[in-house]
């Protein structure tokens, strides 16, 4: 392909966009809206995912040892737990430390604890962290099987509820995306079809004088590509400014809400949107050309 020819393709593509200006505006808007919604959804999922992961990795499994287990056996137990697969850390909190913590917590009312009369009724317990969030459940199960351990605690329900929400968001979002992408493809196909129709005489003559199929196709292909890419670019701009200003608001006002602040992660989503928009545009034009190019 010659450089001159490439120039010709681009010139033709932009010319026909100018000629069908309002139709092009409609197609660009559709892609922009679709990409914007897809982007919001992608950011939402990424954030919920991020929160869930963070929550999960924060989760500690607390395993309480039977009160009457002697210290030496507790220490052996610590080794045993440490040897389980997927364990990041094991911290033994002996009953003495537990009592201290309790004293500290009760503050001025610590006299109440005098009622214990010097006995320490608290159990030793282990704080276990998993190396990966999805191992938490399994580790909790394994700990519960150890006979000297009478109770295992972790934030199971919270995590499961979050994942349930995530699954639902994903499902609804996917349906929405499919619908929007379909609409965008359809509109671009219609726009390009109008162009093809307006230029059918020219195409006929091109075929007549021996233009190759791809020579005829390229301008339309580029037209669809640019309509898609341009729409997606608009959406990306809106998402970029929208998301980061939202982030500013949230981090100053609702600081406990953990949002994705990593710019690279956000850029990746925007890049994918841009590529997706261009692909949708190209797909639309291919669809409309397939029927019309049998001159």
């Amino acid at each position: 392909m010659k450089f001159r020819t490439i120039g010709y393709y681009f010139k033709q593509a932009f010319k026909s966009m100018r000629r069908n200006f309002w139709m092009s505006v409609a197609a660009v808007s559709t892609v922009a809206i679709a990409a914007f919604l897809v982007g919001i959804f992608a950011l939402l999922v990424t954030n919920v995912n991020f929160m869930a992961t963070k929550l999960e990795s924060d989760i500690e499994v607390v395993a309480f040892v039977e009160v009457d287990v002697p210290r030496s056996e507790v220490l052996q137990l610590e080794e045993q737990i440490r040897s389980l697969p997927g364990i990041a850390s094991v911290t033994l909190v002996p009953k003495e430390q537990g009592l201290e913590q309790m004293y500290a917590r009760y503050g001025r009312d610590r006299d109440l604890l005098g009622a214990l009369g010097g006995d320490n009724p608290l159990p030793d317990y282990f704080v276990v962290k998993a190396r990966e969030p999805d191992r938490v459940g399994r580790i909790a199960g394994q700990l519960a099987q150890i006979p000297q351990i009478y109770k295992v605690d972790y934030g199971q329900q919270e995590v499961e509820r979050l994942f349930q929400v995530l699954g639902w968001v994903r499902w609804a979002g996917s349906a929405l995306i499919l619908l929007l992408v379909g609409a965008a493809v359809f509109l671009i196909a219609t726009t390009v079809r109008l162009t093809v129709f307006a230029r059918r005489r020219e195409l006929q003559i091109m075929k007549l004088v021996g233009a190759s199929d791809w020579f005829i196709r390229w301008p339309f292909f580029l037209e669809g590509f640019f309509l898609g890419a341009f729409g997606a670019a608009l959406a990306c701009l809106a998402l970029y400014f929208g998301y980061f200003s939202l982030l500013d608001q949230v981090t100053t006002n609702i600081s406990f809400l953990a949002l994705v602040t990593d710019r690279a992660a956000v850029y990746e989503i925007l890049w994918k949107l841009l590529a997706g928009g261009a692909a949708v545009g190209a797909l639309g034009s291919i669809i409309s050309m397939r029927r019309f190019l049998k001159v």
Binding site: R4, Y8, I205, M206, V209, F215
Partner: peptide, 24 residues
């Protein structure tokens, strides 16, 4: 005749060569 009415005679003739990817 099958000419393209939106461009000059010169461009109509040049069009055939452009389509065949002749150098300028």
């Amino acid at each position: 005749y099958s000419l393209l009415n939106d461009r000059s005679v010169y461009d109509n003739v040049a069009f055939a060569l452009e389509v065949m990817e002749y150098p300028g």
